[in-house]
Design a protein around this nucleic acid. Sequence first.
DNA 1: ATTATATTAGAACAACCGTTCTTTTATATC
DNA 2: GATATAAAAGAACGGTTGTTCTAATATAAT
Lengths: 213, 213
Amino acid sequence: MKVLSIKQQCIIDFIHRFLGDRGYPPTVRDILSGCGISSTSVVAYNLAILEKKGYLSRHPEISRGIELLTRTPGSSSRVQVPIIGQIAAGEAIPVPTPDTWDVTAAADTLEVTEDLTRGKGGLYALKVKGLSMVDALINDGDIVLMQHVSVVENGEMAAVWLKSEKEATLKKVYVEPGRIRLQPANSQMQPIYVEPDNVEIQGRVIAVIRQVA
Amino acid sequence: MKVLSIKQQCIIDFIHRFLGDRGYPPTVRDILSGCGISSTSVVAYNLAILEKKGYLSRHPEISRGIELLTRTPGSSSRVQVPIIGQIAAGEAIPVPTPDTWDVTAAADTLEVTEDLTRGKGGLYALKVKGLSMVDALINDGDIVLMQHVSVVENGEMAAVWLKSEKEATLKKVYVEPGRIRLQPANSQMQPIYVEPDNVEIQGRVIAVIRQVA
DNA sequence: ATTATATTAGAACAACCGTTCTTTTATATC
DNA sequence: GATATAAAAGAACGGTTGTTCTAATATAAT
């Protein structure tokens, strides 16, 4: 009783297709012919089971009153993130300003769903130029989704600016007595130790998105 | 005659709200009470106008057969991709079946925007387990967005199954005379050469998503 | 085999709902 | 005002559609 029967799977799938095709839900008799079922009562019977299992919601006495419930309710909304520049070795990370903040004014925007941002604010995106971040498993052309913070927790991946080296890099940051340890994401590589005065946190990495094809 | 009348605007708005609230379109009489209209024929009259103007599509003789044509932002450009399993060295890549295809039946889904999928079909996602893909700049826990194809163009990143080695890996595929060259994404690493009979294309990589924080 | 439970069949009812027709009222154009 | 067009009102017809009832059949457990 835990899994859906073949028939129930077909019903869910059919409603899904029907809704996508026509824009309105099917009737009991639509499902009947669509799934090769021979009686409306059988459809009603299986719909009742599907509702009890939480796959859909029915509105009694209402024609086509079938509502498909998405697996993740409270459907996540979309967020427009401005791509405010590039990140490359030897260049400063462009810090977001009120101007560049404006999504409409940004040169390009990235559209992400909220299950990626998890409700975080102060987001911006950078396009990675060059191979200077390969030790963080970040390739040329990747897009890094960032949150503009100046303090990060231990072990978080962050964009740090090394003042004396004049170099921006993405590393995991660990604060240790008298020094800061920068750990590449690739665990096979050795960490770098720098003086606290030499580092400036530019933001923390929320996600990395690489579009291949 | 160019603009919509107050009543017509109300109808469009009401259908929109109704659809969002209940998941199925309203009846003529729903619109009647919802917009304070006093006769079904008035609703029919205005619906005919709205259809002629291209705001909606009606399906004759079909209850609730109203389809809003103005693409509701957030609905048309989002795609639910089923995360159908893991990919790891020494394990076969789970090929999508009609069962696992169904979004509602999938254990977990990834919601992406269409500017990432670019209208592609046959999409599924895999969660990367382990560090066997680091040479492709893919980390443990990354999510790989895949398209289910069996043939790829030269230079495309694909999930390939090496039969004799019993190993799944992500590489750029180049067909060369008498052999197939598998090029790691990290250009600093050396390519691998394998026999054509030994490889099986499982799908091409569309994007890689890494959630860090 | 027997019993209990799950599923299927068929039919019929009653309300739902799109359509259409005629009549009335409003709005514009001259 | 006269006329034409647009919009609304009201009612009725008929197919649609969810529901429900009874009976039959399948499946599983003991």
